[in-house]
Amino acid sequence: MTTTTPPRSGAATSADTSPPRRRDRWYRWDVRLSPYLYIAPYFVIFGVFGLYPLLYTAWVSLQERALNDPEGAHWVGLDNYTRLLFHDPYFWNAMGNTISLWLLTTIPQILLALWIAQLLNRRLRSRTLFRMGVLLPNVTSVAAVTLIFAQLFGRDFGLINLALDAFGLGKIDWVAGTASSQVALAVMVVWRWTGYHALVFLAAMQAIPGSVYEAATIDGASARQQFWHITIPMMRSAIVFATIISTTGNMRLLAEPLLFAGGVASGGSDRQFQTGALYLYETAFRQFDFGYGSAIAMLLLIAILLVTGVNYLVTRRIRTD
């Protein structure tokens, strides 16, 4: 234990014979080094589980390499990338699906979450129950959720088709169509994540001081005006956070499309709902083309960085004027 005050004379301290010089030096080292030690665990863990795999993936992406034959790997430079970018329609198909699924999930998710947060922010009976309740979809297992939704969207005996049929609208082969399969997937994602975002939004709403609203009410602002001109701008950082989380989550969308197709990694018979992450999985882990899969992973990373940047620029425009 280091201490800055000189020790009082006493039985315990008089036994301490170490010269004050050395203790000063210890103290200096302590002050200078211990902060780094405190933050070291994060960086060590990040280095081992984040940075190293990233660099390794970058290295593998420059090789022609089979997952089950690492010794047969050889260097091909940027070949994987040129093939992906200029000669692989399925990569662009997967990226296109990722973008359309991103739009189909993020926008309804944010709007619904705002609406739910607004509802939860009122004085409700058994508020805590509802607030915890919206988080339930988020803590259920993805696999279970997807399997149940896949049943709901089943062609022959799915509940949704039964309902459509009862209204005389006919049955839809959800998995077969491009739009229908993506809508079904979007419903799964939105159902899963809306509650989570609603809670984040609720916290942000409650952080807005009541006096702002009082002042607005005195100035004659309607509830609607208050929502658009006070609540939304003051929740900016929460909205930025939510869009970034849902964007990166969407770029990694894998389990839903995989299980929706019954475990087949092609994402539908014509790849109509194959996402970027699923294409990466199919290439690297079903076809064992590890080098090419790593190149897809690197491009996905770049895409995430780009989209997050655009996200940030757009949401930055929501500001208090």
């Binding site: 082969d173 077969a176 087949v264 092609s266 539908g268 018979s269 014509d270």
Partner: peptide
């Protein structure tokens, strides 16, 4: 199998 399903689903 995917090719066959495309025919089954009336896509092609």
């Amino acid at each position: 199998a995917n090719a066959m399903l495309r025919v089954e689903q009336g896509k092609q």
